[in-house]
Design a protein around this nucleic acid. Structure first.
Lengths: 226, 226
DNA sequence: ATATTTTTAGACATGCTTGTCCAAATCGTC
DNA sequence: GACGATTTGGACAAGCATGTCTAAAAATAT
């Protein structure tokens, strides 16, 4: 089937291109309309292929949906781990570094197309596909939260932070940094670059007042002046 | 049409009962299946009425949906303002009082049936009904956030908190207090009483380290001991 | 008890969507 | 240029959901 001696990639080029195009369109339509509301004809049209081609590739509306979620989960996870690599291990200026990290996480993982799509699909159809989303839970939050917590633990060990429970600190960090974006997220909107930055700045400031080490101590008394 | 001299409530008793029953079932089904996936026959069955009765009352699937969201918005709003009344104005023990308030807000407004339903419907169908959800936004977040912020401002004025911007503090408070429940919310689950309490306790502790006034200052150095 | 309103069950027309089938056209490769 | 695989467009059957209509039954008020 696959060209046995092809130089670069096994299946013909146009084939994979169409596959990707279909996944893209399916993602977009499932997201907008939900699973039940999604129309295969519309997906095909949006992908620029015929309906039959969609069926050739994925066989079934449900299989297509599962493929989309799987794909999205993988891509999002990869993005998060990439971003996690930019976590400040030896911060020069911890506040600025954490803000940078938060903005990065937001821009590249939470607010981008994939992040929004995955979040919406999980919220909308999560209860209907328990095993599929169990996988997401293990592969996603189940791996990213501990990884993030470990980073905070290291920062604490190096004396840059003061915290008892790195897991809680990690959750508090993300919660604070996204605090001002929740309403926008709710309605599926994309916050502006500026909103992201503001939310991150305010969130990190509060985080450091709660969890800052010796160096950050100064911030507190300053902010505490009513 | 309505009994002109009825002693208690104007429309016949059974009529309103059926209406409520339909709204209830519709809410439940719309929530589970989404607007497109919701089936009028199923709603009727779940409400224990005939399909025709659903049409008699609401005329239209879309009108029914709008009625459900409107109803939900009102009820949730009412609940939030009621809960807001329990905000500690003159706290004896600020930490315990804030925890109590947070738990109350969670149990009665965010985790209950209506809260979960409204959240899900907004996330799933918000983009499709812009004007409907614009109303929600104004009536809901547009009124509740300032109200909550005002409470925090008062607490700060009385010297119990130290904060620059009460709006941000309010958002940070809610974010922290719900930090550990996000994953559960995502999948439409209901956190246990204990999870709610834990999340509130941890959240309030962090909040007070970030925003605590003079009295709460002691907490910080205590937690800062690695 | 009677009259009025509401509810019910079911049939019904209509339109939409899924998924299949097929013959012609297109594409990429040898 | 010829061959095989893929894609295309459209026809097609089947199922399902919405919304209407009707006559009978039930509930309510007078």
């Amino acid at each position: 089937m696959n060209a046995p001696h092809a130089p670069d990639s096994f299946p013909p080029r146009g084939h994979e291109a169409k596959r990707a195009s279909i996944m893209d369109a399916a993602c977009s339509v499932f997201c907008r309309e939900g699973f039940a509301g999604a129309n295969i004809d519309l997906i095909a049209a949006e992908a620029g292929v015929s309906r039959q081609t969609v069926y050739n590739h994925h066989g079934d509306k449900e299989k297509l949906f599962v493929a989309v979620v799987r794909d999205l989960t993988e891509r999002c996870n990869a993005g998060i781990f990439t971003t996690l690599a930019s976590f400040p291990d030896r911060p020069a200026a911890i506040e600025a570094d954490l803000v940078r990290f938060a903005v990065c996480m937001n821009r590249n993982c939470l607010c981008n197309r994939d992040g929004k799509a995955l979040r919406k699909l999980i919220q909308a159809e999560g209860e209907r596909y328990p095993e599929l989303f169990a996988v997401w839970r293990e592969q996603g939050p189940g791996r990213t939260w501990p990884a993030l917590a470990a980073r905070f633990a290291r920062l604490a060990l190096a004396g840059h932070l003061a915290l008892d429970d790195p897991d809680i600190a990690a959750r508090h960090f993300m919660a604070l940094v996204n605090a001002e974006l929740q309403t926008t997220f709710m309605l599926g909107g994309t916050p502006t670059e500026d909103e992201v930055l503001q939310s991150a700045r305010n969130g990190v400031r509060a985080f450091l007042r709660a969890y800052g080490g010796r160096e950050a101590g100064a911030h507190r008394s300053e902010a505490a002046a009513s």
